Simulated scan of single mutants.
Amino acid sequence: MWTVTRVLIVDDDSFARTMIRTILAAQGIDVVGEAADGDEVPAAVAEHRPDIVLVDLQMRRVDGVEAIRRNASLPGAPRFVALTGYGNEDAVVQALRAGAAGFLSKDDDPSTLATHLRAVADGGGALGPDAAALVIQRMTTPEGQDRAAAARTQLQLLTEREREVAALVAGYTNQQIGTRLGMSDNTVKAHVTRALTKLGMNNRAELAVLADRAGLTA
Score class of each variant (00 low, 15 high):
Met1Thr: 10
Val4Ala: 14
Thr5Val: 15
Thr5Phe: 05
Arg6Trp: 06
Ile9Glu: 01
Val10Asn: 05
Asp13Phe: 11
Asp13Tyr: 09
Ser14Trp: 06
Met19Pro: 02
Ile20Gln: 15
Ile20Glu: 15
Arg21Asp: 06
Ala26Thr: 11
Gln27Thr: 06
Asp30Val: 06
Gly33Leu: 09
Glu34His: 10
Ala35Trp: 10
Ala36Gln: 10
Asp37Ser: 07
Pro42Lys: 07
Ala43Met: 09
Ala44Gln: 14
Val45Glu: 06
Ala46Phe: 04
His48Asn: 11
Arg49Cys: 09
Pro50Phe: 08
Pro50His: 06
Asp51Glu: 11
Ile52Pro: 00
Leu54Met: 07
Met59Tyr: 07
Met59Val: 06
Arg61Gly: 08
Asp63Phe: 03
Val65Tyr: 08
Ala67Tyr: 10
Arg69Val: 02
Arg70Gln: 15
Arg70Asn: 11
Asn71Glu: 12
Ser73Leu: 14
Leu74Gln: 14
Ala77Gly: 09
Pro78Phe: 08
Arg79Thr: 02
Phe80Pro: 02
Val81Lys: 03
Ala82Thr: 08
Ala82Met: 15
Ala82Val: 12
Thr84Ile: 05
Tyr86Arg: 12
Gly87Ile: 03
Asp90Glu: 10
Val92Trp: 00
Val92Asn: 01
Val92Tyr: 00
Val92Gln: 00
Val93Met: 11
Ala95Met: 03
Ala98Leu: 09
Ala100Trp: 00
Gly102Asn: 09
Gly102Phe: 06
Gly102Val: 07
Phe103Asn: 04
Phe103Cys: 10
Leu104Gln: 04
Leu104Ser: 01
Ser105Tyr: 01
Ser105Gln: 05
Lys106Pro: 02
Asp107Gly: 15
Asp108His: 08
Thr112Val: 11
His116Ile: 01
Leu117Phe: 01
Leu117Ser: 00
Val120Phe: 00
Ala121Lys: 00
Asp122Tyr: 00
Gly124Trp: 00
Ala126Asp: 06
Leu127Glu: 04
Leu127Pro: 13
Pro129Asp: 14
Ala131Asn: 07
Ala131Phe: 03
Ala132Trp: 12
Leu134Pro: 04
Arg138Phe: 13
Met139Cys: 14
Thr141Gly: 04
Pro142Cys: 04
Arg147Gly: 12
Ala149Tyr: 15
Ala149Trp: 11
Gln154Asp: 15
Gln156Val: 15
Leu158Gln: 04
Glu160Arg: 10
Glu160Pro: 08
Arg161Leu: 11
Arg161Val: 15
Ala167Cys: 03
Val169Trp: 03
Ala170Thr: 05
Tyr172Asp: 14
Thr173His: 03
Thr173Met: 05
Thr173Leu: 05
Asn174Gly: 12
Gln175Phe: 09
Ile177Gly: 09
Met183Val: 08
Ser184Ile: 05
Asn186Ala: 12
Val188Ala: 06
Lys189Trp: 11
Lys189Asp: 15
His191Cys: 09
Val192Gly: 08
Arg194Lys: 14
Ala195Pro: 03
Leu196Thr: 00
Thr197Phe: 06
Lys198Asn: 00
Lys198Gly: 00
Met201Lys: 09
Met201His: 06
Met201Asn: 04
Asn203Cys: 05
Arg204Ile: 07
Glu206Cys: 05
Val209Arg: 05
Ala211Leu: 02
Arg213His: 08
Ala214Leu: 08
